[in-house]
Simulated scan of single mutants.
Amino acid sequence: MRSPIGEGRKRLLQALFAEFGENGPGANISMRQVAERLDVHHTLLTYHFGSRAGLMAAVLSEARRRDNLVIAATGPEIGFVPLCRTIWSFYSDPAHEDRIRAFHHLVGLAVYEPDAFGEFVADVDELARLLEKAARGDGFTPADARQRSLIAVSCLRGLLLQRLLNPDTEIDAAAERFISSLASGSTE
């Protein structure tokens, strides 16, 4: 008896992480090469993920879900600014560079085809929700917590993109300066 579609997709995602590690398959590997490594037919990947970009989006969504669990586990009572530092430290680690590169690639594709990347776009804000919860725990109003989390996530992602585009700049110092500005209650 065949398992439901969602179960097959989940098993394939597990197999992808088991085979390729926490970042999933690299950007230059084809669907056929991925299928060969998993010992499945490439049409199975196409059935569950649609395309190479769909596969990347699913892998990245699962990787971000796992990342968010790790980040959230740093302490349920962690404040907004320490959480921003934790997020920066986590994603600025060179071990995550391929994932950061894939994230920005997929964001670019999603801008042009939001319907094709619905799942990916839907969970992009999970990190902002973690930050919003921390800001509310620090006593900020719901509206201010939402705005602060959006600003923080946007700036941190922008700094990560800048690091990819121009790695010789002092991105870590700029990130610390930005995060420190959050401690004063002002991002201006």
Rank of each mutant, 00 (worst) to 15 (best):
L164I: 00
R64E: 13
I87L: 12
Q147G: 07
E19P: 02
D39R: 14
L16F: 05
A63L: 02
N23G: 13
K133T: 15
P167I: 11
F49H: 05
L55F: 00
E113Q: 05
E170R: 13
M56K: 03
S149R: 13
G185W: 10
T86M: 07
A122N: 05
D172F: 01
M56N: 00
D172G: 11
D125K: 12
S30A: 02
L12A: 15
L13P: 03
E188N: 10
T169Q: 11
E77D: 13
H41V: 12
R65E: 06
L83T: 13
A173K: 02
S180V: 07
E113W: 08
H104C: 03
L16Y: 08
S92L: 01
Y112L: 15
V34N: 08
R9S: 05
V40Y: 11
D39W: 01
R2H: 09
I171K: 02
H104K: 08
R52Q: 10
R136Q: 12
P76T: 11
R157Y: 06
F20V: 01
G79L: 02
H105V: 01
H41Y: 11
G75W: 07
A102F: 01
V111I: 15
N68R: 12
K133N: 08
S186H: 08
A122E: 12
A35K: 09
L60D: 14
L164K: 02
V107N: 09
P82S: 05
G75R: 08
S154D: 02
R66S: 06
H42I: 13
R129W: 03
E19L: 02
G118I: 05
Q162N: 06
